[in-house]
Design a binder for these strands. Structure first.
Lengths: 194, 194
DNA sequence: ACTACAATGTGAGCGGCGCTCACATTAGCG
DNA sequence: CGCTAATGTGAGCGCCGCTCACATTGTAGT
């Protein structure tokens, strides 16, 4: 009944589900991401994804994991090896821009309560966290990175979320960068002084 | 079937829905907040809430609005009229503690995309925003409140969210306060210097 | 090559949900 | 008292998450 190239076994349904989920997320937001819709897009029966993901949460965790990896890439792309406050600030700008570019994905990564986390996901999260801590330490060797890195992460993360929600006045691209840069440098110089 | 005091007309179903929603939110998180569950808890048919709220989003907006008001109260309770960095920091601590005390409500207020916002909700949000801006200006009269207030809000908001998601090492109560206090004071002193 | 077996996909189905509509009941007002 | 608008009901549609018995296929062991 299906065309000639169709096989009963899909081949790599596991990965296809994640791709389809990312598409649905971008098109229709978090509510559009249903296992049934994923199955439809993958050209497979509604029950098939359950062979690869225990439940919706599991799929979401997998999607979030690729989100963290993409975030890490974009942070690295902002500056290969930041070592000054200005360069660190540009990484912060990249963080916020990621959130604005992929709002649904960003909300999925951080906005939902994540009980019984996927291993893959916690690893990807930890990678981002460690990376931030590392570059903060490099940019401010005289500061206490253990204390400074979470503060900077929080600042940038909060800016991202408040912008996403429109709680801050909708800014142009340059304003976002300015705000992030100014805030980070303020925090940095203060801590460095101690 | 219902007791003698039962009336066909509920009396104040609109408000009862919000109360029921808050209960459900605390008990079972965001996914437990369904219009049908609200109706059940209010002792009313599943279609009844639609007389008062156009859709689920509308109810959520109403719930979020009371969340913002409660947040504003807790900020005010932390210090009636803060005028020093330390007092401002205690307000920030209250912000984070609100998020940790009511995680589901906090996520509902900020975590979901809020298209076509309720008037009541935007007003309540603006009230919080303005209040923060006001006390920042009072605590740091020599700083540019226009620029400083959003940075502080973002910092505190980010700390709240990252703690909620467990992205930061789970801290004891005192550690939260310490972290918030240190971060705020760092930012403040830096900006005040300009 | 044949045969078990494990992996993977199917189809039907259960309960829950958001939402709508025709209809019943009630409150408020002339 | 009677009219109208407000409010609640019941049934129902389509979608969803999830489960289960069953069909199909890749693969490993002989």
């Amino acid at each position: 009944m299906p065309p000639a190239n169709a096989t009963y076994h899909h081949g790599d349904l596991r990965a296809t589900c994640v791709s389809a989920a990312l598409e649905l997320l971008e098109e229709g937001g978090a509510t559009a991401l249903s296992l049934r819709a994923v199955a439809r897009r993958a050209g497979v029966s509604p029950a098939a994804p359950y062979r690869h993901y225990a439940d919706r949460e599991a799929l979401v965790s997998a999607v979030a994991a690729v989100g963290y990896r993409e975030l890490a890439e974009r942070l690295a792309a902002a500056h290969p090896a930041p070592s000054t406050p200005e360069q660190l600030a540009s990484v912060g700008v990249a963080y916020v821009e990621f959130a604005l570019d992929q709002p649904a994905l960003f909300r999925m990564m951080f906005g939902e309560p994540c009980d019984r986390d996927n291993d893959e996901r916690v690893a990807a999260t930890a990678a981002v966290s460690l990376y931030l801590r590392e570059i903060v330490a490099r940019c401010f060797p005289q500061a206490d990175a253990e204390a400074l890195a979470p503060a900077i992460w929080a600042l940038v993360h909060g800016l991202a979320f408040l912008h996403l929600d429109g709680k801050l006045d909708a800014p142009t691209q340059s304003t976002v960068a300015d705000r992030v840069t100014a805030a980070i440098q303020g925090l940095l110089s203060a801590t460095a002084r101690d």
